[in-house]
Amino acid sequence: MNKFQYVKPATLNEAADILYQNGDEASILNGGTDLLVRMRDKMIKPKVVVDVKAIPELKELKYTEEEGLFIGAVVTMNEIVCSDIILEKYKILAEAAHEVGSYQLRNRATMTGNVCNASPSGDTIAPLYVLSANIKIFSKEGIKLVPIDDFILGVRKIALKPGEIVVGIQIPPIKGKNGGSYYKHSRRKDVDLATVGVAAFCNEGRWKIAYAAVAPTILRGYKAEEILNKLDVIDDTTLIPAMDAAVEEISPISDVRASKEYRFDMIRISLKRAVLAALEQYA
């Protein structure tokens, strides 16, 4: 790890100043589970590391009927997994958060960190796509909300300018019957990255689908959604056209985890399993 200056701002304003002054040379330290590995591997060599864990606004986890759910940037995965309100109203998020790393890693890792890493296989990102999450960003100009699919630009690329800091994730309230599930296909049962992941969410009969680890960013499965929305009965057989559509919507690569061909096969199965599991939650 290279040498760097460590700062721990107490307020958003202070953090924004430091980030603005240091630009690309500053890295935000949140849970650190990705940052420290990347610094160890010398993939990044920040001059300033900005620990945001002392900023009060970032620690919030709250739900209101009007605004929905807010998950502060430093709320950990395990806090999300164990949150009653999330388990009750956004179970898919708890499910996905539980898929991230090991128990001890989830004590440090955060959902905002997962989003800001913008890895194609980030487990919590696909569920945030189907929940139409917004990323709440603070800068000296004020607060803005950016839809997650506008926020994530590419592999490890996000729409965050110098001086901006993610306060948390805002998820709209869900009205009416709904159910969602995240299905992850990986090589090992415990602690593995997704080879393929699918988030499926149904609200009042309208489906939202997102695919993970099959393109440079998470992808929405618009075609599959369209097909699903028209189905009266959803089962193994009627799902086939949607599974076929998923194959057309993705652009996976071959890597050490799987070949492109296998990912095409697994997107079908993952879609099917995610949708069927979402239906089981549907209420």
């Binding site: 090589r187 090992r188 049962k189 415990d190 602690v191 990255l193 050490v256 985890r257």
Partner: peptide, 16 residues
């Protein structure tokens, strides 16, 4: 060697 780490060289964990 393309997988010289425990991220991509998986040895059995408890559930295995």
């Amino acid at each position: 060697v393309l997988n010289p780490n425990f991220v991509d060289y998986k040895i059995p964990a408890v559930s295995d």
